[in-house]
Design a protein around this nucleic acid. Structure first.
Lengths: 190, 190
DNA sequence: CGATTTTTTGAATCATATCAACGTACGTGG
DNA sequence: CCACGTACGTTGATATGATTCAAAAAATCG
């Protein structure tokens, strides 16, 4: 839980003792590369804090293809937050791209945690505020950039993903086909 | 401030007395239709709670066109949250689509409010959590729907906007040209 | 009512998708 | 540790959804 404690410490001071008290609200799960943490349509009601590894969040489109909407790596919280808040079945799958271990906070545990340790409201307020700001920025980029520009932006701003994530998932995340990504790369290499 | 008090009451119990204590952290601003609350590039560091009316959030693209990325109406918080969190110049403009009045919370006031009245962390945690969930859902829709489907989805799910917002802004928000929206409408009416 | 803003039309063009086929690489069992 | 099979990446031809531009028509505002 070291990584989570450090993450909380970015936003507020938390002592060893206090952290060990709240540790009981969390649990662990690990998956090998390509295994699913969650499949679309399942009951879920959890948030994941990625301790190590990398996952993609995706859904199946009408045409049967898997659409990746997000990646999450170390020190990011991820979930299907709409179904989390409404306690509905998940609309997304979450799948390990590498061997991955996560810290789980269930909806119940979260609610109890926040009642018993109100200072954790500050932490989650900050986490969600930051996530929302990032999401608003991402929406801006979706409008601003052509698909080709989006690839260059992604490559330049998140180089580690280019290493860690297969091309067809990057293409999906960027909203185009693997074939088109191939074409962009061909042009830009030569 | 009645509308804000009611909004807070959706998430936690707040007494008249307590609310009147925190009211000093907020201020008001009103604008007529088509006036700007904020122009891209200005210092901002505020969050707006829309009390009445409707605004659009937009930026100028490379080609010089105004790109609307969001609307906000009564009882929604809005801002450029990335520049808000980093205290940078705004990357967006905010403009009244109708005569609009907003409740302002500056970054300074927000920080003081949260220190002095920690229960407000719960309110903002809930606000940002909900906003992030909605944003994640919107990103899903951006991937899931064709532009034509996006229009029908918007029309069916937010009918009041079709009334209140001119077509060229809806087209911009949905990510296509007014001409194309016109074409979709022609097809679907006949 | 005239002036301006918004919406519609149609033709030409462009960015990206689709499909099918081929090349490459990588992991898994023998 | 090699070989094979499956998964991934590339190529080229064709198709399509959406844009651009210019102009006309309709709606709104002072």
């Amino acid at each position: 839980m070291e990584s989570l404690k450090n993450h909380i410490n970015n936003y507020l001071e938390i002592s060893e003792t206090t952290f060990s008290e709240i540790a009981r609200f969390f649990s662990y799960q690990g998956k090998k590369k390509k295994e699913y943490f969650l499949r679309e349509g399942e009951e879920f009601n959890k948030m994941f804090f990625i301790e190590s590894g990398c996952v993609n969040i995706s859904f199946i489109k009408d045409n049967g293809q898997e659409q990746t909407i997000d990646f999450a790596i170390e020190n990011w919280w991820t979930s299907d937050f709409l179904s989390f808040s409404k306690s509905e079945k998940s609309r997304f799958s979450i799948r390990a791209i590498e061997d991955t271990s996560v810290i789980i906070l269930t909806k119940d545990a979260k609610e109890k945690l926040l009642v018993e340790y109100p200072f954790m409201e500050t932490y989650f307020r900050a986490v969600f505020e930051k996530a929302y700001a990032a999401s608003q920025n991402r929406i801006k980029l979706l409008y601003e950039l052509s698909r080709e520009e989006a690839y260059f932006h992604f490559r330049d701003n998140f180089p580690e993903f280019i290493q860690r994530v297969p091309q067809y998932l990057i293409a999906s995340f960027l909203g185009f086909t693997p074939e088109y990504l191939s074409e962009i790369r061909k042009k830009s290499i030569s």
